[in-house]
Computed example of a mutant assay.
Amino acid sequence: MSALRIEGYVIVSADGMLANAKHVMPDSLRFKGDQEFFNAALDRTGLIVHGRHSFEGQPNSPKRKRLILTSKTAALAADPSNPNAVLWNPAGATFDEACDCAGVRSGTVAIIGGPEVFAMFLDRYDTFWLSQAPHVRLPGGQPCLPGVPERSPQAILAAHGLKPGEPQILDASHDVSVTPWRRAG
C-alpha cells in the first residue's frame, strides 16, 4: 500500500517519557505550540492510529477516521462508540486490511501512540515527529518507545534508519522543539 505515508507524532520529557507513572500525559508535558503543531498535522491526515489509552482530545477528534488497536476483537470491527473508528487487532488482520476497512487507501496516516503502537511502525515511518520538552522529567513514567530509557528515543529512531532533520522551536520560553526524523534514502 505505497500510497500511504506513515508519520509518527509524540512529545517526550527529557527522560524520553510520554506519560507519568499512572500512564497519563501530565499538564507539565502540554505546551500550546506543540498542541497547535499536533492539531494542524492531524487535520491534514486521512487516518489516525492509536492504542486504547491514546487519544488526542481536540475539537476535530470526533470527525477523524481512526484505527484503535485492541485485543478485544478477533481482527476488525466497527467501534460501537465512534462511527469514524475501526477496532483493529493486528494479530487477526494486517495493517493494509485495517486501512481498507477504514476506507483509507492513500494519504497520510498519523501514528499517535502508545509505545507499542509506535514500535509497530518503526520500520515503516516516512517521518517521525519527535517533540521534546527538555525541562520536564517524569521519573518512573511511561516511555515513548520500548527500550527507553536504556536508549534514547533518538538512538532507537536512528537504529531503524531514520535521520534527524532541522528542529523547529514550538515554545521558546520552555525550549520545546520538534525534530522530523525521516527515512534515509
Rank of each mutant, 00 (worst) to 15 (best):
R66K: 15
M17E: 02
P83I: 11
W129I: 10
S28Q: 10
N60V: 15
P26R: 03
L18R: 05
L87S: 06
E36T: 15
P83Q: 08
V86P: 02
G51F: 01
K22R: 14
F38H: 07
D123S: 14
D96L: 08
W129L: 12
M25G: 01
L130I: 15
V136M: 07
G107R: 07
D15H: 10
L29H: 07
P62F: 05
P115V: 03
K65F: 06
G57H: 14
I111C: 01
L18Y: 03
D100W: 03
P139M: 04
P134M: 13
D27A: 14
D123C: 09
S54V: 15
A75T: 15
V49M: 01
N84V: 07
A93Y: 06
T94H: 01
F37G: 01
A85W: 05
N20V: 04
T70I: 07
D34Q: 10
S71E: 11
A85Y: 05
Q132R: 15
K32G: 09
P90C: 05
G92D: 09
R30F: 04
F128M: 10
I112N: 00
M25E: 03
D43C: 10
L29M: 07
D15V: 14
P139S: 02
Q58W: 01
W129M: 12
G51Q: 03
A40R: 15
Q58N: 11
F38A: 02
S28P: 00
Y125R: 11
P62L: 06
R64H: 12
G51A: 03
V109K: 10
E116D: 11
W129V: 09
G103V: 15
V49F: 00
D79A: 08
L18V: 14
L67Q: 08
V117G: 00
P139N: 02
N82V: 06
S61W: 13
P134C: 13
S28V: 15
G46M: 10
A93S: 11
A85S: 12
K65D: 06
D126K: 06
D126F: 05
A21V: 09
N89M: 08
R30M: 11
D43L: 12
A40L: 09
K72R: 14
P134R: 13
P115A: 14
A119Q: 04
K65Y: 04
G113C: 00
F118C: 02
G33E: 12
F121K: 04
R64W: 13
R137K: 11
L76S: 05
F55I: 13
N20L: 02
